[in-house]
């Protein structure tokens, strides 16, 4: 029986992962900010699973001081931790971040520094146990700085680099570290975009890829997979040219 902790559980992608893991009989500990929505998700999982354990804790993950206690609570509720998924986040408005340093720093706090905290704590616990999977949602936006969203991109770039280092550190300790880089996903976080076109994927499509990546103990996974090719090209455009583009 797998014991899985999900941070940011009410996000569309994480909730879809929770449903998929629940269907496989996993026990879940769900952390989110909005208590009624968390209860709604837990209720939904109980109806679907009818038996496997679902526990919840509400917390504002931007506040890193509470993180350690959340791991304690998860271990107490589940009797141990096998998989950690970190999936919370915001999509800050780039223009607002440029106009206000506070907004930019807040975005970095939520999307990068809180990940550093959770990842460090998860790594230390699973390293001591000698087994487990840590999976975190980064983004294709973290692969290269672009004027349209470089604050979010920088935060996700930090997450990607941090995960790379952690994966290297834990490679021979029995702990897998999985970096997920979704492309455009149709979720409430991206509600203000016009979602026509082939590049948009559903949250459940991405969740399916995450569940599979965790099972395979994959390293870096672009979801859907074609984003690997798109980002390969984008990463290899010389900066001299790239700086003049509007992407």
């Amino acid at each position: 029986m797998q014991r899985i902790v999900i941070f940011g559980a009410t996000s569309a992608i994480a909730a879809a992962c929770a449903r998929r893991w629940n269907a496989l009989g996993a026990n879940l500990f769900l952390v989110g900010r909005d208590t009624p929505r968390l209860e709604t998700l837990a209720e939904d999982l109980r109806v679907r699973g009818g038996g496997s354990k679902v526990a919840v804790a509400s917390a504002d993950l931007a506040d890193t001081s509470g993180h350690d206690a959340l791991f304690d609570a998860a271990e107490a509720a589940l009797g141990g931790i096998d998989v950690v998924l970190i999936a919370h986040g915001t999509l800050p408005d780039q223009a607002a971040c440029e106009a206000s340093l506070d907004t930019a720093m807040e975005a970095i706090q939520v999307n990068a520094l809180s990940y550093v905290s959770l990842l460090t704590l998860a790594a230390n616990r699973l390293e001591a146990k000698g087994d487990g999977v840590i999976c975190a949602i980064s983004s294709v936006a973290g692969d290269r700085g672009r004027k349209s969203n470089y604050v979010y991109g920088a935060a996700k770039g930090m997450v990607s680099l941090f995960l790379g280092g952690l994966r290297n550190r834990l490679a021979d300790k029995g702990v897998a570290v999985v970096t997920i880089k979704p492309g455009f996903v149709d979720t409430p976080m991206t509600a203000s975009f016009d979602k026509g076109g082939l590049l948009w994927a559903s949250a459940d499509t991405v969740a399916k890829g995450i569940v599979s990546a965790v099972k395979r103990r994959a390293d870096v996974v672009y979801l859907p997979g074609f984003w690997w090719l798109i980002m390969f090209i984008i990463r290899h455009i010389p900066e001299r040219i790239f700086k003049r583009l509007s992407l």
Partner: peptide, 11 residues
């Protein structure tokens, strides 16, 4: 469509 949670089911 995203408001898609079950609340209770009595088998």
């Amino acid at each position: 469509r995203a408001m898609d949670h079950y609340i209770a089911f009595d088998r």
